[in-house]
Design a protein around this nucleic acid. Structure first.
Lengths: 220, 220
DNA sequence: GTTGTTTTGTATCGAACGGTATGAATCTAT
DNA sequence: ATAGATTCATACCGTTCGATACAAAACAAC
């Protein structure tokens, strides 16, 4: 789910010629005492549970097992760290969203989206809820950029679902009588709603039960 | 929507006999230079937009038009102020939820809930989204109490809807084949989902359109 | 006018925030 | 071994956080 281009050095074409960007990690100097990938995973857990504003640098460095200078040297700052976490979230725990769009029919896409979401939200390895929904839903002025980018992340996911339904109508497996826009927004609503249900403490079984109800009401 | 007992002095029965609590404002001393009700309204707008953690005391006092000592003397502290705001939210902008339960049938209740929610979320007088969903969805350790009480607020609303559907089954206007638990959770999901849709920037018309779609799929 | 009570404005508290300067430590290359 | 490069650990920066101490100001009662 590569919805955002996070590396400004690449996206803005600042670097001339074909200068390589970190082609391989530097072979000189003291090696890192930690695995940046593992550290990023830990950071994701913290942001997932406490949100962008609620996660302090002390929370982050403690969970990541590194100290502040290492964090800043490796990830930039708190905001850049969060954006890298968001990207990781889209490719990892939320990667099922784009995968589900490969299902054969609109109906199958929706079933896969709902069932995968419930599986993800019910996984006790993660904090409750959806990181993209809850970690920067509303915040103070300083975190406005993070809020906007997290919202753009959600909107991009909904747009992908919408485009898949448009294709489904061309393929003929989605009746032309239903609006692809309404349907995409409706499905996104269900996913968002499940996220809040999870945050409310709904059990895995309860969520499984409610999406079966929702699927039964689908008119196609 | 009096879902929470916010005044601990009352709920815990600390005060002996029938000692009155602020029966009438004191007639001696310098009078307040502001209207606490108006100030609370302003505070609600701030928490609604920035969330509990994102709203600083400077944000609050500036919008409320008072200074810090006045805020603390009148509302206790930041947490108590938020809880009073949450109570006000339940009785004001979100008061339609309990009102909707007075509709004659389960179907009418759902229609009223969805349409009233869209009207509330589409009102440009308020910040986007639902205060009870977004203002303390996840946060740091210090705000854990606020998070729990906000979650309890949401869960209480869902429970009220559930109990209304149970009654509807006794009344016979909701088929016994549908689970009242599933249906209440489903409707709450739609309301939560609408809140996130609103935060995502969905227009009033888009939300109106998607709930009409959702209502069309209802099997009763 | 004096006293007693409450509110307001200012100035500030200790703690925590995000972020960094600095030097010791640890590696490769020669 | 030495030099060069990078990372790590400590200690600290300025700012902002929520919360208050204190005294002047504004009222009612007498």
């Amino acid at each position: 789910m590569n919805l955002l281009t996070l590396d400004k050095r690449v996206s803005m074409n600042i670097i001339p010629f074909s200068m390589k960007i970190n082609p391989t990690p530097p072979c000189v100097g003291r090696p890192k005492g930690f695995d940046p990938d593992e550290a990023l995973e830990k950071a994701m857990q913290v942001f997932w549970q406490k949100g962008y504003e609620g996660a302090s640098l002390s929370d982050l460095t403690e969970s990541m097992g590194i100290n502040r200078p290492s964090l800043y040297a490796t990830f930039g700052n708190k905001e850049e760290l969060f954006l890298k976490v968001l990207n990781r979230y889209g490719e990892g725990p939320a990667g099922y969203v784009l995968e589900a769009l490969n299902e054969a029919t609109a109906r199958a896409v929706i079933e896969k989206l709902l069932r995968s979401t419930v599986e993800m939200l019910g996984d006790p390895k993660h904090p409750r809820g959806c990181l993209a929904v809850q970690s920067a839903l509303c915040c103070g002025d300083e975190a406005n950029d993070v809020q906007k980018k997290t919202r753009a992340f959600r909107v991009a996911g909904q747009k992908s679902i919408f485009e898949r339904f448009e294709r489904a109508q061309q393929d003929g497996d989605l009746p032309a009588s239903v609006s692809a826009d309404d349907l995409a927004r409706y499905v996104a609503m269900l996913l968002y709603g499940l996220s809040i249900q999870s945050a409310n403490g709904a059990t895995h079984e309860e969520m499984k039960s409610v999406i079966e109800f929702a699927l039964k009401t689908l008119p196609f």
